[in-house]
């Protein structure tokens, strides 16, 4: 999955990703499919369980030293809850962990999420390969910052 020039980046330590559904939302079909897909793509996958607070998500991400935090919400609260996670990361000065999002996110919300540093924001029906590629690219950026 990782292209040639950065293969060595993840040779000894694969991409580590935390999947999280912050907010009050039990729709976990997508997050489980992605957990399996990321694992099959060679990543180390953690899942934050249901109903973690934004604080818990950020704490786990830092303690586990992940490359990427992938947020998933299908309850329409992404503009409030994703933002809380992004704000916390900013407040704590964390810039070596990438934030990606997904769920039922209307197109018109995507630019604001991007501006918060949350990229991807894929909806149902997105091919796994597209998501894996995106996560890998963001993981590379994060890993390079970690190695700085």
């Amino acid at each position: 999955m990782v292209d040639g020039k950065n293969r060595s980046l993840f040779k000894d330590k694969p991409i580590k990703i935390l999947l999280a559904k912050p907010g009050i939302d039990g729709h976990d079909r997508g997050v489980f499919v992605l957990a399996k897909a990321f694992r099959d793509a060679g990543m180390e996958v953690l899942y934050a369980g249901l109903l973690p607070t934004p604080e818990e998500v950020v704490d786990t991400a830092v303690n586990e030293d992940v490359d990427v935090v992938a947020l998933s919400l299908l309850n329409g609260a992404h503009m409030t809850v994703f933002k809380k996670v992004a704000d916390l990361m900013k407040q704590r000065g964390i810039d070596d962990i990438a934030l990606v999002g997904g769920g039922t996110i209307p197109d018109e919300d995507k630019p604001s999420l991007e501006a918060m540093g949350i990229s991807g924001n894929y909806g149902p029906g997105t091919p796994l390969s597209v998501i894996i590629e995106h996560v890998t690219r963001r993981a590379e950026e994060a890993r390079l910052k970690k190695l700085r």
Partner: peptide, 22 residues
């Protein structure tokens, strides 16, 4: 909505942004 389904009041901080959404 989600706060009702999980039995949180509308003024619980967890409910912020979720009121009336689902």
């Amino acid at each position: 909505d989600m706060p009702t389904l999980y039995a949180y009041d509308c003024d619980n901080p967890k409910s912020e942004g979720e009121i009336g959404k689902c």
